[in-house]
Simulated scan of single mutants.
Amino acid sequence: MSAIKSPPSSKLFTLGLVSAWYSSNIGVLLLNKYLLSNYGFKYPIFLTMCHMSSCALLSYIAIAWMKIVPLQTIRSRVQFVKISALSLIFCASVVSGNISLRYLPVSFNQAIGATTPFFTAVFAYLMTLKSEDWLTFITLIPVVTGVVIASGGEPSFNLFGFIMCVGATAARALKTVVQGILLTSEGEKLNSMNLLLYMAPIAVILLLPATMYMEENVVGITIALARQDFGIIWLLIFNSSLAYFVNLTNFLVTKHTSALTLQVLGNAKGAVAVVVSILIFRNPVSVTGMAGYTLTVLGVILYGEVKKRSSK
């Protein structure tokens, strides 16, 4: 069967989508770092709640009003409980990731985040007893080794930030595995945009008491900051909107390319984010740290290649 060539307009559209995905993804990461570390807005749970509020509102507008994708309804109480469980894991991942950005540079944060395939393989085995073949596990050795090397050579290493970042990466992998287990039946499957539509409001409800208890009077502090510099409000609105567009462009890139292409682009995105963050924040990077990160990325690329061949 011969391949059908995409028209130039289609290629330009796909290139535009990928550029939008890269920009929003790296943008939200850098803005989170700026707000939580450089600006001194030390409220990662509240920031995550702003993100989830934006995702809830913009998801509703995109699906119910603009009809970007058809609305899928929740069909049972059991399905709602499953989505709530996913939302809890999702919250843990985003909050932990935002906390880690207070203590770690973006470059090191991305190096740890690249180990997601390792955690996915571990959780898949523990929860489904589905083991990868030996070659797949061998490709995960450089993924983990690279992070160990990068950790030893990281000038700005912080143990608490490291633990939070590993926790965020593990939670992200756990969500992928749990989502595959929980929403398997044809009647329960939701596309990522509809899943976000239901997960985001649940996340806001879960984060609200955590914010009030752990980040007391954060609303009052934010209002006080806004009186001194109203720019903080625009930063929060822009940052929260970008958090939604990360999900939207992620969905659209997958739709117009493939999940495998997204994985390859994601690996490259991590490297781009590292370079951009070093240029912007000027955080010190050692040769050992960069060598470790490079080894991790190479391991992830090898992992993707092996998975692609085993799925054929």
Rank of each mutant, 00 (worst) to 15 (best):
S2C: 06
K5M: 12
S9I: 04
G16M: 03
L17W: 07
S19R: 00
Y22S: 03
L30W: 01
L30D: 09
L31I: 14
N32E: 03
L36W: 06
Y39V: 07
F46P: 12
M49V: 09
L58D: 04
L58W: 04
A62C: 10
M66A: 12
I74G: 14
S84F: 06
S84E: 02
S93E: 01
I99R: 03
A111E: 00
T115F: 11
F118P: 14
F123P: 11
Y125S: 08
M127G: 10
M127L: 15
T136K: 15
F137N: 12
P142V: 04
S151R: 01
G152P: 01
G153P: 07
N158F: 11
G167A: 08
G167Y: 01
A171W: 09
A173I: 00
E186D: 12
P201N: 09
V204A: 08
L206A: 11
A210Y: 09
M212C: 11
V219Y: 06
T222R: 09
I223D: 00
A226H: 11
D229W: 01
F230T: 10
L235Y: 10
L236Q: 08
N239I: 02
Y244D: 01
N247H: 14
N247M: 03
N250F: 02
V253K: 01
S258T: 11
L260H: 14
L265F: 08
N267S: 14
N267G: 15
V275Y: 02
I278P: 05
L279T: 10
T288Q: 15
Y293Q: 10
T296E: 04
L302D: 00
S310E: 13
